[in-house]
Design a protein around this nucleic acid. Structure first.
Lengths: 240, 240
DNA sequence: CATGATTTAATGTATAGACATAAAAATCGA
DNA sequence: TCGATTTTTATGTCTATACATTAAATCATG
């Protein structure tokens, strides 16, 4: 693998930082120094350091120089599961089983539904994600038909609503809430677990620009599933 | 707020993408076009588009052009709690209560401890995070004294081990596993909950370069705590 | 008609220089 | 000595240009 000059500079600095040779808060060589050291123009050095800034490994202050940033621990990267892909990676058979399907107006009591609907009808679905026929997650989903009118025609025998949306709707923003709950009787029944079993509860709302697209709540069987978040350079593969 | 030219181009393109004016997969104007449109040099356009690529809003293919990327939903940003800060933000009083403290060699049975120790001793702590005196989380932590020899002298009456480490150790990489578990008797007792209560279980391992720094396992009371992950441009504040 | 060679249009990388800007450091004045 | 002013230094932005690279598009050929 051939590396470009600015990549070389970037990785050299990165290595120096990660190895501890350049500790947090320390100043790294000035652009002029690096320019000479690598025998290149300032723009090239600048590009390399800018990349480190974008990765928030480095902070720059005018006149003062560039400094190794102290890791913030506030923004880790969370691998969000594409359930089908993960189940297949486990060499299991994936299936989505639709439990219910309904088109109705938003419940005026429920704030989220009101926000989502945009005045129009909602498609409300419940279903199960299955791995080798065993329930893995129970899902309740509301979809804004204002944002995704085509979805009313879908059957979801072959593809899960989430996968369909991912393929057909260009969303731009999403927020996920992660919590632990004891399985309620209905959830426990669907997941084939005892009432009270610890479940990883994931709630995600997705927008396209200002308009809500979908709002989904999933219960995962706690002992069978977990999420992985990662901070740092060595981006690993997905969760198991 | 004055914007630089490449920022202007960047935000213009970003707005076009997020508004849907440029849909996923569509091609955006060539660098030559934008060059003319903004009356600037190609380097400036290139910098703007490169930023969008770094933010994975855009993908580029040679000869073909730059295209709006389809959101991947594989990498959301997870707000990792600084517990003390969050408790204070809730206008509650924060405290850490040390339950046990021990210096010992790694258990040869436990792979993680072996990996962490680097042959030297471990500092093993357990304690409670309290909000207004109420238990919020139960924590078990192992610290590599090879990586952090100073920690053996700490008392942790005033500061939690996590906060101390964050302040004193320049780590470079961390991995967090998130799961849901039913509270075991010991955990339930410490958290003042019934046995079996759903707990959010967070396990984090932290490295500096190749060397392990700390390995921590936390149990949060499910109904009192959750995590927020976010994808998209409108970076909001922390979780509640 | 398919397949392989050639052209060409786009991005990728890099240079050398110019001027702008902010803040630390040095200088000067009261 | 302290505060205000000036200088200096390092980054920030941008230009105009050059050549490299790659993959799509086109064209030639069997």
């Amino acid at each position: 693998m051939k590396k470009t000059l600015h990549e070389t500079i970037r990785t050299d600095m990165e290595a120096a930082i990660l190895s501890g040779a350049l500790a947090a808060g320390e100043r790294l060589p000035t652009e002029a120094d690096l320019m000479e050291q690598y025998g290149c123009s300032r723009m090239t050095v600048n590009k390399a350091i800018s990349a480190l800034v974008a990765a928030s490994l480095v902070e720059r202050r005018k006149k003062a120089g560039s400094f190794v940033a102290r890791p913030k621990m506030h923004s880790m990267v969370l691998d969000i599961p594409d359930l089908e892909a993960e189940v297949l990676q486990r060499r299991q058979r994936y299936a989505f089983h639709l439990l219910s399907r309904e088109i109705r107006l938003a419940d005026p009591q429920k704030e989220y539904e009101q926000q989502l609907s945009g005045g129009e009808a909602l498609l409300v679905l419940t279903g199960l994600h299955l791995a080798d026929g065993q329930p893995l997650a129970f899902e309740e989903r509301s979809v804004s038909l204002a944002a995704v009118p085509d979805m009313a025609q879908q059957g979801f025998e072959l593809i899960s609503p989430g996968a369909w949306l991912l393929k057909h709707v260009p969303w731009t923003e999403a927020e996920t809430r992660i919590a632990a709950v004891n399985a309620a009787p209905e959830v426990a029944r669907h997941l084939d677990q005892d009432v009270g079993t610890a479940c990883l509860y994931i709630e995600r709302r997705t927008w396209r620009g200002e308009a809500g697209v979908t709002w989904v709540r999933q219960h995962f069987i706690g002992k069978d599933y977990d999420l992985i978040a990662h901070f740092g350079p060595a981006r690993s593969g997905g969760a198991i």
